[in-house]
Every structure is written in C-alpha cells, then in structure tokens.
C-alpha cells in the first residue's frame, strides 16, 4: 500500500471506530468504494471493534432497562427502507449518491464547484470540484486538514500524481496548487476544514467558495 495516496492508518482506524467527523467520513467512504483492499481492511478493523466490544466488561443497566426496551419494540413503527439514490450524478461512487447536490458554480476559469449536502461539522464541509485539463486550482492554504479523493481524471502536485481513487491529506503547512494532468476534467470530492486562504486574483472570484 502506498502510504502517500491512501488515508493514514490512524484515519482508517478513526473511520472504522466511528469517530471521524462526518464530512471527512464522506470522503473516506468514497475512497473505500474505489479501493476494495482498503475497504476490506476497514471491515477487518470493525471485526476488531466487535471483538473489543465483546470483551468489554458490562456496565449494569437500570432495573427497568429491559422492560423499556421490550415496550419500545412493541410500539415501534420504524421501518428500515433502502435509502433512495438522491442525486443526478450516477457516475459517483455509491456513498456519494445518497446526498443531494447543490448547483454547479463557476468559481474560476475551468473550475466548477458544487456542494455535497452531507452533514457538516463546524466549519468542515464536503464539495465536488471539477477542473478542466491543464488547469490549476487556486493557490491556497487552509487552517485545518483538507481531504481529497479523485473520482475521475488525475491531478498532480509538485511532487506527486493522484489518479482515480487516490486520497490526499493536506494540512495547514501545505501550500496547495494541484494541476489537472488528465485529458478529461478531473472530478474530486473534498472535505474542507477551517478557513481557506486564497492567494492571488482568483481569491476574489472564489469568494462564494471561500465563504461557504
């Protein structure tokens, strides 16, 4: 496994444990849909979680706990229905199809963005980003961590190339300006955390994006 284009072990563990923030979990879920080996590993980590739950010393329940539970199931009308696939982009990996999508917005030459209406976590939210061949994203830094997964096409940073399914974690130190190197537009899903600081003239155009 190439450590650089995959989520870190810690992030996969946090995802398996259910403690990753929801926007980040959306991007990891998209990555896992495109990387069966990592998906299998997360499942195995869940088995570890199950085993640890099994080994946990039980904590006594209140006296009426079972009676309450039995009363609840008697009156329960909740049914589990398969979640309808909500959005208009069948090319997305299945975990992303469950979310409604905002309109595409033009945010700069060859760059379009649309919101993924997944749960937010404070300032952290999920977007789809579509960038034309040869274009660069606006040069930016971020206050927090930015997670990106490539859904189609490819981009490259100064040091690395990211293809379909590849996952990038960029933190506050990174000055980030990926360039699309595929012949077709590059579609990415990203969880953006913290304030994004845009450099240069594109910053003004990117205001709606930056103020999301």
């Amino acid at each position: 496994m190439n450590a650089r284009r995959n989520p870190s072990e810690e992030r996969l563990l946090a995802y398996a444990a259910g403690v990753l923030s929801p926007p980040q979990a959306v991007v990891v879920a998209a990555h896992l849909a495109l990387r069966p080996a990592n998906h299998a590993w997360v499942r195995r980590l869940q088995a570890v979680g199950g085993e640890l739950l099994d080994e946990t010393s039980p904590s006594p329940l209140s006296a009426d706990a079972l009676a309450r539970a039995m009363a609840r199931i008697e009156t329960d009308t909740g049914v589990v229905t398969a979640q309808p696939l909500l959005n208009d982009m069948p090319e997305l990996p299945e975990p992303l199809r469950r979310y409604a999508l905002g309109p595409w917005r033009w945010v700069g030459p060859g760059i379009r963005v649309r919101d993924v209406h997944a749960p937010r976590d404070g300032a952290c939210r999920v977007i789809l980003l579509k960038i034309d061949p040869g274009r660069e994203t606006p040069r930016h830094t971020h206050g927090g961590v930015e997670l990106t997964c490539v859904l189609s096409g490819a981009y490259a940073t100064e040091t690395e190339r990211f293809d379909v399914g590849d996952f990038e974690e960029a933190d506050a130190e990174v000055i980030h300006q990926p360039r699309v190197v595929s012949d077709d537009p590059c579609l990415c899903v990203a969880a953006l955390d913290g304030q994004i600081q845009l450099d240069g003239w594109l910053g003004r155009l990117m205001q709606p994006f930056a103020r999301l």
């Binding site: 444990a17 869940q46 640890l52 209406h117 997944a118």
Partner: peptide, 23 residues
C-alpha cells in the same frame, strides 16, 4: 452490533441537525 453503534455515534457527532444520512 459494533457497526450499528459506530454509525449511531457518527450520527451523534455531527453538529447540525439536518436530517441527512450519515455515511
């Protein structure tokens, strides 16, 4: 059951109340 509990926790962690599916 761990996975069900894990998904519930992830649901609790989200800070806004919009009724959206959690991954």
């Amino acid at each position: 059951i761990f996975t069900i509990a894990r998904n519930r926790r992830l649901d609790m962690l989200r800070r806004d109340a919009r009724p959206l599916p959690t991954p």
